[in-house]
Design a protein around this nucleic acid. Structure first.
Lengths: 148, 148
DNA sequence: TGGGACCATATGGGCGTCAATGGGAGAGGC
DNA sequence: GCCTCTCCCATTGACGCCCATATGGTCCCA
């Protein structure tokens, strides 16, 4: 196709079912399909209480970023702790659903609903209210969520 | 007509039908057609409770701004949250109508009617009353609507 | 100048398809 | 053996694509 913009955009909120699964929005799945992504790399955002999700290339990008700063700096140390110690691979089921594990719940505070937020080259999982607060704060030039 | 006016001007209010659709004013559609725009980038405005609508170039402009700073900086993260997480691509149906999704309703308060407002290089979707209030306030030099 | 054909716009609705969600049953690990 | 995860199927409600109607305006021609 043409005209199809293969970027993660917009936000949508879906319910978690009794088994702890949640449907990834179809528009996001379409991007994953187009990029041929099957293994999803998930890690904790550096700033917000959200889980970032993308293809394996997402991990590559973070590792390059770590390599680009002083390897002994607190910043590199902190990033490595999150990227390597806090990253995990996941995959979707046949219906395009994701298991919401404790890894995700504990970091984001997600319990019954997940807000999916597009970030161009990846997307994020948020607790709905936390997302709205962070977005409102961002509009005012603040961050609204403590650095984690 | 006189000349080719490829700008979005004036305002008009249309009803949302039972299926949640609304006709985009013909004059706006003409501008879109002239610019060859098929994919509409819709963004939750930074200041007003309104949705800004334009071509993909609207997104490009914001992304260039993001690209101008360190992509891993908190500042880039914050901007992406608004530009990517608060934006979405949509398209009109064969009759030139737009689906009024929860993405639009929740942010603007729109329920039964939409006021389309020309903004030269893009246009906006407003809840009719909110638009009139904001306009009246603007005449007095105020803003009239709290940043959302 | 008045009437009427014609057209564009806004709006209404049928219907097929797909997405989001719910739940059953089997495979595998502790 | 029990709990958990995965694969499969069912349901329902939303959305996209299509065609139909109304209303108001414009243009043409008598």
């Amino acid at each position: 196709m043409f005209g199809v913009v293969s970027r993660f955009l917009s936000n949508a909120t879906n319910r978690i079912d009794a088994k702890g699964r949640v449907s990834v929005p179809a528009s996001f799945r379409a991007v994953l399909l187009e990029c041929g992504v099957q293994e999803l790399y998930c890690l904790q955002d550096f700033i917000y209480p959200a889980i970032s999700v993308g293809g394996p290339d997402l991990l590559d990008r973070y590792e390059k970023q770590i390599a680009s700063v002083d390897p002994f700096s607190p910043e590199a140390n902190r990033m490595s702790l999150l990227v390597h110690g806090g990253g995990v691979f996941m995959r979707l089921d046949a219906e395009g659903r994701l298991m919401v594990t404790d890894f995700i719940r504990d970091f984001t505070g997600i319990s019954s609903e997940v807000t999916f937020v597009g970030r161009s080259d990846h997307f994020q999982l948020w607790r709905p209210q936390a997302f709205h607060e962070a977005q409102a704060a961002a509009r005012e030039g603040r961050f609204g969520s403590r650095p984690v």
